[in-house]
Simulated scan of single mutants.
Amino acid sequence: MAAAAAAARPVPLRRPGALLRSPGPCSLLASRVAAPFPRRTDSLKINQLRLAAARFSKESNSDEDDDLLSELRDKWDAIENKSSLLLYGGGAVLAVWISLVVVRALDSVPLLPGLLELVGLSYSGWFVYRYLLFQENRKELADNLDDLKKRITGDE
C-alpha cells in the first residue's frame, strides 16, 4: 500500500533526479549507499606507505642513476645501425597493435575463438609430444635452440 501511495505522489519538476529514484523502500537502500564513508587518515597502510617512501627517498642514490644513464648512453653509442634498430622496434610495436585489433575483430565471429583455441591446444599437445616427452627429443630441441642462438648472435 505504501508503494502505491508513493507512486501516486506527484514528482516535483524542480528535482529531475527524483525521476531516477524508484519510490518506496528501495530509496532507503539507495540513500545508504550514497552516504559518504568516514575517512581514516591514521590508517596502518597509509603509515606503512609513508615509511616506505621515506626509506626509499633516503636510500636512492643519484650516483646509481648516473651510472645507469651513462651505461645506457654507452650502449646506444655502441650501436652502429641505429636506423634499423628503430625500424625494427617500430615494426614490433605496430605488429602488437595490429594483433590486438585483429583479436578484437575475431571475437565478434561466434565460432572462431573456440576454433582458434582448439588449434592452439592441438599445437601445444603436438609440441609436448614431439619435443618434451622423451629425452632424446628434448636434447634435439636444446640443440636446435642453441643453433638458432648462435645464428642470431653470429657466434658460428
Rank of each mutant, 00 (worst) to 15 (best):
Y88N: 13
L72E: 06
D63I: 12
S22M: 09
R73G: 03
Y131L: 00
A18M: 10
Q48L: 14
V93K: 08
F127E: 05
L28S: 11
A92N: 05
N81A: 04
L72A: 09
N61S: 13
P110W: 04
C26A: 10
L29G: 12
F127G: 01
R39W: 06
D67S: 09
A8P: 02
L106D: 00
L51F: 14
G120R: 11
L85M: 14
V119K: 12
K45D: 14
V101I: 06
G114A: 07
V101F: 00
N61P: 01
L28D: 11
P23E: 00
V109S: 01
P23K: 07
A34F: 04
Y131W: 14
L100S: 02
P38Q: 12
D66Y: 07
Y88S: 08
L85A: 13
V103E: 00
V119I: 15
S22K: 09
V128S: 04
G17Q: 11
R32P: 03
S22C: 08
A34E: 10
I98Y: 04
L133T: 15
L49P: 07
L111Q: 10
L85H: 13
D77C: 11
L116W: 02
F37C: 13
P12V: 05
L132E: 15
R50H: 06
L116K: 07
I79N: 06
D107M: 00
G91A: 12
D67I: 05
T41Y: 13
F37A: 15
A105K: 01
P12L: 06
L51S: 15
A52R: 13
P10R: 09
I79D: 03
D74L: 14
P110G: 03
R39E: 14
L68V: 13
G114C: 05
L20W: 12
E59V: 07
T41L: 15
V109C: 04
P16H: 04
S122L: 15
G91L: 12
S70Y: 08
S62H: 06
L68P: 01
G90L: 05
D42H: 09
W76S: 11
G89I: 01
S31I: 13
I46L: 14
L69P: 02
S83D: 11
A30T: 06
S99V: 00
L118M: 14
S108P: 00
L87R: 10
P36H: 06
P10F: 01
G91Q: 09
V93E: 08
F37V: 15
R21W: 06
L94A: 13
A78T: 02
L72Q: 06
W97R: 00
K82A: 00
R39K: 13
Y129E: 04
A92W: 03
L28Y: 13
V11C: 09
E64G: 04
G24F: 04
L115F: 04
E117F: 08
K58E: 09
S60V: 12
R39G: 09
A18T: 07
A8F: 01
Q48D: 11
N47E: 15
S31F: 12
R55S: 14
L51V: 12
P10H: 07
V101E: 01
I98N: 02
A52V: 03
F37Y: 14
P10S: 09
G17P: 00
V96K: 09
P36C: 05
R55D: 10
L44E: 15
I46S: 14
Q48T: 10
W76R: 11
R55K: 10
G120M: 05
L118W: 12
